[in-house]
Design a protein around this nucleic acid. Sequence first.
DNA 1: TAGATTGTTAATCGATTAACAATC
DNA 2: TAGATTGTTAATCGATTAACAATC
Lengths: 208, 208
Amino acid sequence: MAGYVSEAVIKRLPAYYRHLKELEQEGIMQISSQGLGERMGFTASQIRQDINSFGGFGRQGYGYHVTDLRMHIGHIMGVDQKHRMIIVGSGNIGTAVALADSFPRNGFETVALFDNSERKIGSRIGELIVQDAAGLKRYLDENTVDIAVLALPANCAQEVANQLYAYGVRGFWNFAPVDLKVPADAALVNVHLDEGLQVLSYRMQQTR
Amino acid sequence: MAGYVSEAVIKRLPAYYRHLKELEQEGIMQISSQGLGERMGFTASQIRQDINSFGGFGRQGYGYHVTDLRMHIGHIMGVDQKHRMIIVGSGNIGTAVALADSFPRNGFETVALFDNSERKIGSRIGELIVQDAAGLKRYLDENTVDIAVLALPANCAQEVANQLYAYGVRGFWNFAPVDLKVPADAALVNVHLDEGLQVLSYRMQQTR
DNA sequence: TAGATTGTTAATCGATTAACAATC
DNA sequence: TAGATTGTTAATCGATTAACAATC
């Protein structure tokens, strides 16, 4: 019964995907909503509701086929496709994303890295040479790019996002501490690391 | 009317804090729930409910005093206190956190950095020298540490967390792609960067 | 077939929005 | 005082949990 998938469910999809992958690695082929719920810390009922919101992949009396379900969820999220990313900003975070091997291993490949600092342009980070941000338009004219990783200061992130949108980029992964706005035909995820730390600080007070 | 603060509100506190700081920088001293709501993309009603869940900081007919409210929220989150962090794992993420200046600027200071790789021990990252993870217990016996940043592979993150807990650490900021479990008197925030990318991938499919 | 477990409807719970009296 | 805006209660909406008939 593939209907509307709520935002709450979407945010859980990656966790389903990860746990199902772990089960595969353990050689487990089948699992019930009860079993998966115990592993993930959800109720069996929620597991069934969630999975049913995008289609009935289970079998009564049996449960779910692990690989089957994992592949379906991967397809729904689109992680069965390759994604080409550019990183704008070669500071700490830009560098970390460029060097991480987990992203390419999951199909998110960094194809270019830009900065506007004279000091950084031309330097090597992993396999990539930092390019002049002035060449962004040209690069995007000549290459397919799905996602721009924004790893730059808060005060220029929105402006750069606007430019990249104008040049055709429709996916934005923002690490700058601002809530960016992008047009409705683009997708955006904000990552606010500092906010996570603040929530941690709050929880530490409560547990005392 | 300082009652129970819901999880939903807690997750919004850092955004309130950030927006109020921006207002201060713009020299704005006062704001109504309406005005703040427009800035943050919330309804005025939600702003009032949220702020009232931890105490009546507004004045009828006037609104909220920006600095006053910002300081109250900062106090509630505990970000008016200094936090001492150690980083375990000096890979890409550990390095990025160690080098970032935004964390110390907000009171989260990295005081030591550990790794168990021969190749990395003794190398310099910013102001810090990577120490042997074998010396963690001793370091924690001799130094006060509030938060451990776990920037290590998924397969050893839980084990290291258990050890650190045994050595007295009660705050965990986890970057490994596992949902760690810590005892009830410890606080934990999981950061799953790869999950954000997967949600982005999903949204990109939808906007097409 | 009998047992297990889903898909799905109904009940509950919590979070958001609306409304308005209280009050600065 | 009159106008503005909060604090707070009530209404709505959405998400989670419970229950159970359908069915593998």
